[in-house]
Structure formats: C-alpha cells, structure tokens
Computed example of a mutant assay.
Amino acid sequence: MSNLLSLGIPKGSLENATVELFRKAGWNITVSSRSYFPTIDDEEVNCKLIRPQEMGKYVERGTIDVGIAGRDWVRENDSDVVEVCEMVYSKVSRRPARWVLVVTQDSPVRGPEDLHGATISTELVGFTKRYFAERNIPVNVEFSWGATEAKVVDGLCDAIVEVTETGSTIRANGLRIVCDLMESVPVMIANRESWNDPWKREKIETIATLLKSALAAEGMVGLKMNAPNDRVEAITRILPSLNNPTVAHLYNSDWVSVESILHEKEVRRIVPELLKLGAQGIIEYPLNKIL
C-alpha cells in the first residue's frame, strides 16, 4: 500500500456541498467542468469525481480507497465496504431521504404482501428485489429511467419504489405511500483492504474527524462580550453553550469577558437580553469546526 489516498467526490447534488465541507475542514478542492479529476491541496490525496450510484462498487473494488455517497446507493449495489461515518449535510437537507413503496390512491394494496406477482418500477432495482425476496413475496422489478411516478398513474406498473423527504410531491400527484422501505443519509465508505492498511486508515479517520467537526459547526457561531462582574450569573443563566460559557476576568478591572458557542438562530433572540443585562462589546464570529 502506498502513502497516497484515493478519494471519491460525489458528482451531482452532493458535489458542491462536499467541496465546501472539505474547505471548512481544511482542504481546498478545485473541480473543473472539463475534468473528472479534481485537484486538492494535499499531496497525500488524489480525487476523482464519481456518481454516487457507482461509488460503492468502485470503493469495494479498491479503484478508490474512500468515498462519499448516499447509503441507499451503497445498499443498492450491496457493496462490501466499511461505513466510516454518516455525513448529514445541512446545506442539502437535514432530513434523511426515504425510499417508499407507492401506489395510486384507489389501489387495494395495503402492505408489501399485497403485491404478490405485481410489477414494481424503480431506480433502486437491486435493493427492491432483495427487500421482497427476503419476505418471500414474488414480484417483477423493472428499472425506471425517470418519471417513475407517472408510470404507476398511467397503469404501466402496479407500484413504484421512489425517493422522497416529506412525501408532499407524492401526495400532490394523487399517490399514496404504503410504507417506508429504507432511510438514507450520505455516508463515508472505505475499501476494506485500505481500511486495514495502518497509514490509510489513519488518514481516513483524520479526514472523517475534521469533516464531522465542520458539520458540527454548521449553523453555529461564537459569541463574545464584556460584562460587569455582578451580572455574570444572570448572563450565563440565559446564555446557551455546548458545555458552560467561558468566563475570564479582565486585567485590573471588575469586568469579565464571557464567551460561548450557540446556534446562529439564537443570536437574534439573545442579544437584546444580553444588552439589557449590561453586556457590552458583543462580538459574533463564524465557526469552521467544532471538535
């Protein structure tokens, strides 16, 4: 094993968010529209743009050591890989993607068992076949190239397996969710042989730690202020923090410096209260990582 890690960046909806997340974690990745090989400012890493639908199979083969993709596509390919960690991007969605079994409103189907001998259309063919096989329900599963919801409406199939977050689009099309089959979030996955190589494992774990710290910092800010010593108790009582606010005495003064980390949305509510309690010189600053 060489001291060079091959990293798969998901091409498509997660691409920009992934590049931005790496930037916050400390790596600058540059993607060119003319190349499938982004550059990264780390001589120990090289990057490839890979469709999430194919990430699992390339990681399993060892074509790349580590990559990020939706857990749904990893399971679709039944990929034998190490799941290093979840990577829930708030800038994409905090909700897991749900793969659901869907029929028309007037369908008699009330559960998967009612689809005995039925035709199901979906992009997630492998997973759907295994789902029904594990329950001994014989079905015909067809790959859908798109417009999957229209197929069940037009009677081209008996049911579909489709991805959704809230189900609102499905309901708006006059369809009904029978049940959830799987929830999916982005995950970092590693090739098993690479994971067992000490140098590569340490590098992967370092990247995962810093990416998770960048994710933990999303939407969080630091707040720093000065306050009279006799107002500290009142101020710290209303001040959210990860643990407890930091309080430090100012040199040769009966004032203190108070510092805390809180959600950005809390700032607009709490700043007026802090001012009323005598806080001054309030500074809000962004965070890249929380470790």
Rank of each mutant, 00 (worst) to 15 (best):
V84W: 00
P108Y: 01
P96D: 14
R71G: 08
V102M: 10
T128H: 12
Y89R: 08
A118H: 08
Y89S: 11
W99V: 07
E134N: 13
V74F: 04
V88N: 07
E113W: 05
C85S: 14
V102E: 11
H116W: 13
C85T: 15
V102A: 06
R94P: 04
L115M: 04
N77A: 14
I120Y: 00
D72G: 01
P112N: 11
P108S: 00
R130P: 11
L124R: 14
E76P: 01
A118N: 03
K91A: 02
A133I: 08
V139N: 04
T119E: 12
P138Q: 08
Y89F: 15
A118D: 05
E123M: 09
A133Y: 09
V109P: 01
E83S: 13
F127R: 01
S79E: 01
M87I: 14
S121I: 07
R98C: 10
G111E: 08
E123P: 03
V74C: 00
A133R: 14
V109F: 02
M87D: 02
L101R: 12
A118T: 05
V82Q: 15
G126N: 09
A97I: 15
R95F: 10
C85K: 04
F127P: 02
F127M: 06
R95Y: 07
S79G: 01
L115P: 00
Q105G: 10
E123L: 11
D72S: 09
K91T: 05
R110I: 09
I137K: 01
Y89H: 07
V82N: 03
D72R: 07
V139M: 05
M87A: 03
S79F: 00
G126P: 09
G126L: 12
C85P: 06
Y89Q: 01
D114R: 10
